[in-house]
């Protein structure tokens, strides 16, 4: 069972703080990490390999320093890593990104399963997974919280929905995106970390992929960001005072009643 995991290197955004003076993101010492949702994708791929054999290949598109994310994935136990890096890829939106990743998957000869995290922590779009599936004409299932069954040609998975979950069956090859509930990612071992430091990482450019130049990077991106701004910050409201808990609660209830919702 050969599995590809598509990962993204992102700023460690949960540490991002907003400066009160300038109203901007403060990034002092913020490290780049593997997108946290992708950690569940990597873990699931490793578990599949442990059960069914085969290989786990991690793929990322990004600047040269995204290699660091691939080394982290190798330290967790992935077998191979492929970096797609080229100035021509810069400025790609989800459509151009998914096209590029799909070409790499094809060049690698395809996989039994492609796994992505449900979305990236910086963009939060959740679009690249299904778009890669469409590019490769694979079936896809989003928000997978459990793989119930996996055989050489078939899978049965649970897909999280608003009201609970769906059970979905699909032939493989297929693409799934996974949610946090699916597993508990392991820690890298020291031995693997040392090996990962020295591991060879395949690096491909647009030319290596034989990519259609009109479909990559900014040129291949139908969307354009035209304005970026910091949202109006919510201001602290009113702390309800009172001698007793009862008084505070009554004052809150009065406020809430004004909304006519309670």
């Amino acid at each position: 069972m050969n599995v590809a995991v598509l990962i993204k290197q992102v700023p460690e955004t949960t540490d991002v703080k907003i400066s009160r003076e300038t109203n901007t993101l403060m990034r002092e010492g913020v490290a780049s990490i593997i997108n946290p949702f992708d950690m569940y994708a990597i873990e699931e791929a490793l578990r599949i390999r442990e059960q069914h054999g085969g290989k786990v290949t991690v793929i990322t598109m990004g600047p040269p320093q995204a290699e660091e994310a691939l080394r982290q994935a190798l330290a967790l136990g992935a077998d191979d890593a492929v970096l797609l890096s080229d100035r021509a890829f810069a400025g790609a939106d989800t459509l151009a990104t998914s096209y590029t990743l799909a070409r790499a998957i094809e060049k690698l000869g395809g996989f039994d399963l492609v796994i992505c995290g449900k979305q990236a922590m910086d963009g939060d779009t959740a679009q690249v997974g299904p778009e890669v599936a469409e590019n490769l004409d694979l079936p896809h299932v989003t928000y997978v919280r459990r793989i119930e069954e996996l055989s050489p040609d078939h899978m049965r998975v649970q897909r999280m929905i608003e009201e609970g979950y769906e059970v979905i069956e699909s032939p493989i090859p297929a693409l799934i995106t996974v949610v946090k509930e699916i597993n508990e990612p392991r820690m890298p071992s020291i031995k693997r970390m040392l090996r990962a430091k020295k591991a060879a990482i395949t690096s491909w450019t647009a030319a290596d992929l034989g990519a259609d130049e009109s479909r990559i990077g900014l040129t291949g991106s139908p969307t354009r960001v035209i304005r970026v701004f910091t949202p109006e910050q919510r201001r602290a409201g009113e702390i309800l005072e009172g001698e007793t808990v009862q008084e505070k609660v009554r004052s809150l209830v009065a406020k809430l009643k004004e909304t006519h919702l309670v």
Binding site: Q127, V128, G129, P222
Partner: peptide
């Protein structure tokens, strides 16, 4: 969960932009 799964599939098929 439906829109965020269907939307990108359709956008990729039509090769158009999708804003999430």
């Amino acid at each position: 969960t439906i829109g965020r799964s269907l939307g990108p599939r359709v956008a990729a098929r039509l090769r158009t932009g999708l804003t999430a």
